[in-house]
């Protein structure tokens, strides 16, 4: 029975780990931290695998990843710093195209809670209800956080900065 469970989890892991690592990266902006958040989240999912229904496993994993990210910020373990304006150079020297570098830096300037909403809504492409479920809040809260997050994002990512 344990072997069957591991096999099932292995399939789940293989199909999703990279996606959630990328979502975590969108949240924190650091590949090492993203790897850590994703790994810790999958460990937690494995520990409760026997109690998770397969059709809700993704929703549960989204919740765990998001909370793991927010927990690191609450503990003051932030490896990031908010930026008041768009930096002139690329963040971490990544290989994004320049416009993506600017957008990523702008996103990292959005407060963590609002950033989580933006990432789940527009990067992970979830519905308002799914985001509310992942964050454990109401759809109304998701909408208001989305609006505030977009204002903050647009302030740091003006239209003039979007041209390559």
């Amino acid at each position: 029975m344990a072997r069957a469970r591991d096999t099932e989890f292995a399939e789940f892991f293989s199909a999703r780990f990279d996606t959630y690592r990328r979502i975590a990266h969108a949240l924190c902006g650091d590949w090492a931290e993203a790897e850590e958040i994703a790994q810790e989240s999958f460990v937690k999912v494995y520990a409760r695998w026997s109690k998770i229904r397969r059709e809700t496993a993704d929703a549960y994993l989204r919740t765990v990843v998001t909370r793991a990210f927010l927990d690191t910020r609450r503990r003051g373990r932030a490896r990031e710093h908010s930026v008041p304006e768009v930096p002139d150079t690329a963040v971490d020297g990544e290989s994004d195209v320049p416009e993506q570098q600017v957008l990523r830096a702008a996103l990292l300037g959005v407060p963590p809670g609002q950033r989580a909403v933006l990432v789940l809504r527009f990067v992970a492409d979830l519905s308002v209800d799914d985001v509310a479920s992942a964050l454990g809040c109401s759809p109304g809260t998701v909408k208001s956080q989305t609006a505030r997050g977009l204002v903050a994002l647009r302030a740091a990512y003006p239209a003039s900065a979007r041209s390559v």
């Binding site: 996606t19 790897e35 993506q100 527009f122």
Partner: peptide, 27 residues
């Protein structure tokens, strides 16, 4: 533009299934 953030080139993951299973069982 936001959706494209998830599709950027990424370094190879260092986490393996074995690592997750070992830590999960310990948990």
């Amino acid at each position: 533009a936001l959706r494209a953030l998830i599709e950027v080139p990424a370094p190879a993951p260092t986490t393996t299934l074995e690592v997750v299973l070992r830590r999960g069982r310990a948990r």
